[in-house]
């Protein structure tokens, strides 16, 4: 099988890989690059556990071919913290116990970060609709929504101070 050569940027680093044409970006991340933080919950774009950013937009990496990543800028959960410094969303998820099993958490964090970049002061309804594509079966979403709202508030305060 002829493989496709791809050069792309993941979490700020230039990455090259060969992939089968029908492999998804999620397959490439997990199986070829060892980045298993993005999860496969459904493979059909219905659960959001594989959410990554592509050129700043959130996508389900299971709904994108690895070959399509050529020249794009990809962001995954592995790039969310800066060294030991957790992103405010990551901290707030821990403080609020907004995860139980944790399988949906990476996808939700990536999606929520993009929301707060676009909309620093989302309403509860806006958070709920933005995250409607991220299934969580453990928490009933309550603590997730609270954690996102609380992170937004903290980030607004920090930006204001700066």
């Amino acid at each position: 099988m002829t493989k496709t050569h791809v050069t792309t940027t993941i979490n700020g680093d230039t990455v090259e890989y060969l992939c089968d044409p029908q492999e998804t970006l999620l397959d490439v991340l997990r199986d070829r690059l060892g980045m298993t933080g993005s999860k496969e919950g459904c493979g059909t774009g219905d659960c959001g556990a594989c959410t990554v950013t592509v050129d700043g937009e959130i996508v389900c990496s299971c709904l994108m071919l690895g070959a399509e990543a050529e020249g794009r800028t990809i962001g995954t959960i592995e790039g969310m913290a800066e060294g030991e410094m957790l992103h405010p969303l990551q901290r707030k998820f821990l403080d609020h116990a907004a995860l139980q099993c944790g399988i949906c958490t990476p996808g939700i964090l990536v999606a929520a970060r993009t929301l707060l970049e676009r909309n620093p002061e989302p309403s509860e309804t806006e958070v709920r609709y933005w995250l409607a594509g991220n299934l969580c079966r453990c928490t009933g979403y309550d603590k997730i929504v609270r954690a996102v709202m609380d992170a937004a508030e903290e980030m607004r305060g920090r930006n204001h101070a700066a």
Partner: peptide, 9 residues
């Protein structure tokens, strides 16, 4: 059509 993620595509 679909989720926010799907909207991007």
């Amino acid at each position: 059509i679909g989720s926010t993620q799907v909207q991007s595509r």
